[in-house]
Amino acid sequence: MVPYFQANPGISAAEAASELGVTTKQLMTDLNQLWMCGLPGYGPGDLIDLSFSEESIEVTFSAGIDRPLRLTATEATALLVALRSIADLPGMVDPSAAHSAIAKIESAISGREFTGPVVPAPVEAPAVSTVRSALERDHALRLVYYSASRDVVSERVVDPIRIVLVDNNSYLQAWCRQAEGVRLFRLDRIEEATELDEPARPPAEAAADETSALDLFVDGPAVPLARLLIRADYGWVLEQYPMHKVTTHPDGGIEATMRFATLDWMARLLLGFGSGVTVLGPPELVTAVRDRSGAALSAYSALAADAGSAAVFPLNGLEEVGPA
Rank of each mutant, 00 (worst) to 15 (best):
E195Q: 12
G317I: 03
Y234Q: 15
N316C: 11
S129G: 15
P250E: 15
P202Y: 13
T130C: 05
E239Y: 11
S293A: 14
T257G: 09
G45N: 07
S309L: 06
L47E: 07
L229T: 09
L89I: 07
A207P: 12
S170C: 11
G181V: 01
A103R: 12
E180M: 03
A324Q: 04
G272C: 07
Y171E: 11
R201V: 02
P122K: 12
L228W: 10
V158W: 03
L187W: 09
E198I: 01
M1P: 00
G294N: 12
R150G: 03
S100R: 14
G272I: 03
R183T: 02
I190F: 03
T247C: 09
F114N: 14
D219Y: 04
F260Y: 11
A311E: 06
H99Y: 11
G43I: 04
Y300F: 10
A16Q: 00
N168L: 11
A14D: 04
R201M: 05
L165M: 13
S298C: 05
L269W: 13
A307D: 13
I102V: 08
V164W: 15
M92E: 14
T77G: 13
E75K: 12
F273H: 13
S154Q: 05
V279N: 14
V59I: 05
P90R: 15
I105T: 11
A13K: 02
P3F: 11
G274E: 11
E239H: 12
S96L: 04
H244K: 08
P40Y: 14
S212R: 15
E113D: 14
L280H: 12
D94M: 01
S149V: 01
Y171F: 14
V321C: 02
A288V: 03
W265A: 06
V2G: 05
A78S: 10
A16E: 00
A179Q: 02
E191C: 01
F260N: 07
G38V: 02
A267K: 09
T278C: 09
V321Q: 05
L80D: 10
P314K: 06
R112K: 13
A305Y: 06
R231V: 04
V286N: 14
R177G: 02
D306H: 08
